[in-house]
């Protein structure tokens, strides 16, 4: 027990890295997710095909296979590129490979969530925006985006929780996240069970904190909806 406490700061630096990887991948996933949703809802058949292939491929292949493909294969691709451009050697860091792969994978899942949420926004609201003379981009920023958040939040929350657990895989390509550090600490103290259990509990803690944040957001973005329900009951 004393050893576990002694190694706690060591493990917690890994936790910080886990959270960094998770948050950065989330940003990529949201950006790609919006693109994928736009592609799948697009009028162009080519865009719909690209969006469809992306989501199907990602959801059909295990995350670790994609991650190792990008980590080892990406290095070769970049070597070819830098050779062609006459640049020096560029190292693919496990951090970049991990963040890009996880963002790329969850972009597909976010895309499905966002697509459903955009479809749930009443057409009349979008038409009203257009009737006011807003450009399509402005309609999207001022009307569709704020209105879709409420519909997207439950799916977004699920994706985030799965994404956080997926970050554990970066330890396999050598990134020093908390699972990796638990392995080191467990080996040094000959108490691997204690340290993996600690990491499992830290994941549960991250989940619990995320749930609090997600519940706050869901309340915040449903304010308008609850008000109308209360009005209807009051009348």
């Amino acid at each position: 027990m004393a050893e576990v406490i002694g190694y706690l700061p060591f493990i917690l630096t890994g936790t910080v890295l886990t959270v960094q990887v998770a948050l950065l991948s989330l940003v990529i996933a949201c950006a790609l997710g919006m693109l994928a949703a736009a592609a799948k809802l697009s009028d162009s058949a080519a865009a719909r095909l690209v969006g469809g292939v992306y989501t199907t491929l990602i959801r059909g292949i295990p995350d670790l296979v994609l991650m190792t493909l990008l980590f080892f294969g990406g290095q070769i691709a970049i070597n070819h590129l830098t050779d062609a451009l006459g640049l020096g050697y560029v190292d693919v860091s496990p951090f970049a490979a991990g963040v890009v792969t996880i963002g790329f994978i969850f972009g597909a899942y976010m895309g499905e969530t966002f697509r459903g949420a955009i479809l749930a926004v009443p057409r009349g609201e979008i038409e009203a925006g257009a009737a006011f003379g807003m450009s399509p981009a402005r309609v999207f920023l001022r009307i569709t985006l704020p209105a879709m958040v409420r519909h997207a939040l439950p799916g977004f929350g699920n994706n985030w929780l799965v994404l956080m657990k997926t970050t554990a895989l970066v330890s396999v390509i050598g990134l020093h996240d908390m699972v990796f550090k638990a392995g080191q600490a467990g080996g040094a103290t000959r108490q691997p069970f204690s340290f993996y259990l600690l990491v499992a509990l830290l994941f549960l803690l991250l989940t619990a904190v995320s749930n609090l944040g997600l519940r706050y957001l869901e309340r915040r973005y449903s304010v308008g909806v609850h008000a109308t329900v209360a009005d209807a009951e009051g009348a």
């Binding site: 657990k165 997926t166 970050t167 554990a168 895989l169 330890s171 396999v172 699972v179 638990a182 392995g183 467990g186 000959r190 108490q191 691997p192 069970f193 204690s194 993996y196 259990l197 990491v199 499992a200 994941f203 549960l204 989940t207």
Partner: peptide, 19 residues
């Protein structure tokens, strides 16, 4: 459902050796 599968498998494969 709250912990990664990788950590669960490590807990059994590497962890049980502690006992």
């Amino acid at each position: 459902r709250g912990t990664p599968l990788l950590a669960q498998v490590y807990l059994i494969y590497h962890g049980f050796a502690q006992f």
